[in-house]
Amino acid sequence: MFELLGIPPQALFGQLLLGLINGSFYALLSLGLAVIFGLLNIINFAHGALYMMGAFVAWMLLNYLGIGYWPALILAPLAVGIFGMVIERLMIARLYHLDHLYGLLLTFGLALIIQGLFRNEYGISGLPYQIPTQLAGGQNLGFMFLPNYRAWVVVASLLVCFGTWFMIEKTRLGALLRAATENPALVGAFGINVPRLITLTYGFGVALAAFAGVLAAPIYSVNPNMGADLIIVVFAVVVIGGMGSILGSIVTGFGLGLVEGLTRVFYPEGSAVVIFVIMAIVLLVKPAGLFGRAA
């Protein structure tokens, strides 16, 4: 019954799962980019490097301090988030009065520096990180085998994405954030410390990237280029979803992961480029992105 066009169901569901996993990372990363872009108006090119730092901090916690996966899932985003806030205060904040392009160039430079430092220290061969014992093994669902850790990645990403969406759309802090995105001067004139809000927002967006990095550590090997490879696709996802749209980046992230997976089943040769082809079409038809408001 599952014989679709001669594709065995194992292959189909296997690729769909892989698509969901990739989509989990696309969604977390593009969500962080969207949050940052909304308030800071900069495209955070350091995002991939900070994702990589998340994975490395988890690895260091384990290998230098013996701190395992579960605490690292909190501690690594916290550490990288604080690192991000320091960067924002010391460097990015000085560029807000200039064209967006300067923020982009600065964060691009930062990404190269961070990646270079890690490459010098740890090489490029990649460091292993074990799946936590609680999530080893998997379930036989009959039509496919579902590794527990991969299921966890999808669930964790969904939870964090929708938690973030809820925080931004439904809470008072989120209302402040949305208001400051629209008119920071007026929000300041109500007595709110907008620069601090911006710093915290950057820290939060960066922490999301680091969280994705920790999730990725047991799946992909921890290596200095892991962010650079992924972030190119994530930027395409952001362009397709529409810069700055919260829900758009979540839906587009998961959706494009699935599209990529399906392409791998039906037309494997196209899987590496399908997202970029969609990006080109979206740019031609709806330049603000699927969920973006026209500027």
């Binding site: 001067a185 300041g188 004139a189 109500f190 007595g191 709110i192 410390n193 907008v194």
Partner: peptide, 10 residues
């Protein structure tokens, strides 16, 4: 502005 707002001007 935020300090001025806190002094009671709106």
């Amino acid at each position: 502005a935020r300090a001025i707002a806190r002094m009671g001007i709106a």
